[in-house]
Simulated assay, not measured.
Amino acid sequence: MKNKKPLILVTNDDGITAPGIRALISVMATIGDIIVVAPDKPQSAMGHAITINNTLYLDKISKENDTIIEYTCSGTPVDCVKLAVNEILKRKPDLCVSGINHGSNSSINVIYSGTMSAAVEAGIEGIPAIGFSLLDFDWNADFEPIKSFVKKIALETLENKLPEGVILNVNFPKLKEKDIKGIKICRQAKAYYSQKFDKRQTPSGRDYYWLTGDFVNQDKGEDTDEWALENGYISVVPVQYDLTAHHTIQQLNTWNLNE
Score class of each variant (00 low, 15 high):
Asp59Lys: 15
Thr30Gln: 14
Ala45Ser: 10
Met46Trp: 05
Val85Arg: 13
Ala84Thr: 03
Val85Asn: 09
Pro19Cys: 09
Asp33Gly: 02
Ile34Trp: 03
Lys63Tyr: 13
Gly75Trp: 01
Ser26Asp: 12
Ile68Met: 09
Ala49Glu: 06
Thr76Lys: 01
Asp40Ser: 04
Ala45Leu: 14
Leu56Glu: 07
Lys60Arg: 15
Gln43Lys: 12
Asp66Lys: 03
Asp66Met: 09
Ile21Glu: 06
Thr55Glu: 14
Ile68Ser: 09
Arg22Tyr: 08
Leu56Pro: 11
Met28Ala: 15
Lys41Ser: 08
Ser62Thr: 15
Asp59Val: 14
Ile31Leu: 07
Pro19Leu: 13
Val27Asn: 00
Gln43Ser: 12
Leu83Tyr: 14
Leu56Gly: 05
Thr55Arg: 13
Ala23Asn: 02
Gly32Met: 09
Thr76Asn: 01
Ile34Gln: 00
Thr51Ala: 00
Asn54Arg: 14
Asp66Cys: 06
Thr67Tyr: 11
Ile35His: 06
Ser74Ile: 02
Asp33Tyr: 00
Asp59Trp: 13
Glu64Cys: 11
Ile25Tyr: 05
Val85Thr: 11
Thr67Ile: 14
Val78Gln: 08
His48Arg: 12
Gly75Arg: 01
Ile50Gly: 04
Ala49Gln: 05
Ser26Gln: 12
Met46Ala: 05
Cys80Asp: 08
Asp59Gly: 11
Cys80Met: 10
Leu58Val: 12
Gly32Glu: 04
Asp59His: 15
Tyr71Ile: 07
Ala23Met: 02
Ile52Thr: 15
Pro42Gln: 07
Ala84Met: 07
Ile35Leu: 12
Ile21His: 03
Ile25Gln: 05
Glu64Lys: 15
Met28Lys: 07
Ser26Tyr: 00
Met46Ile: 01
Ile25Cys: 05
Ile69Tyr: 06
Ile25Phe: 02
Ala45Gln: 06
Pro39Ile: 07
Ile34Asn: 07
Ala84Arg: 06
Asn65Phe: 13
Asp66Gln: 08
Ile25Lys: 05
Tyr71Thr: 04
Val37Arg: 02
Asn54Leu: 08
Asp79Ala: 09
His48Ser: 15
Ser26Val: 02
Ser44Lys: 12
Gly32Val: 13
Gly75Ser: 02
Asp59Phe: 14
Arg22His: 13
Ala49Val: 00
Ile31His: 00
Asn53Thr: 10
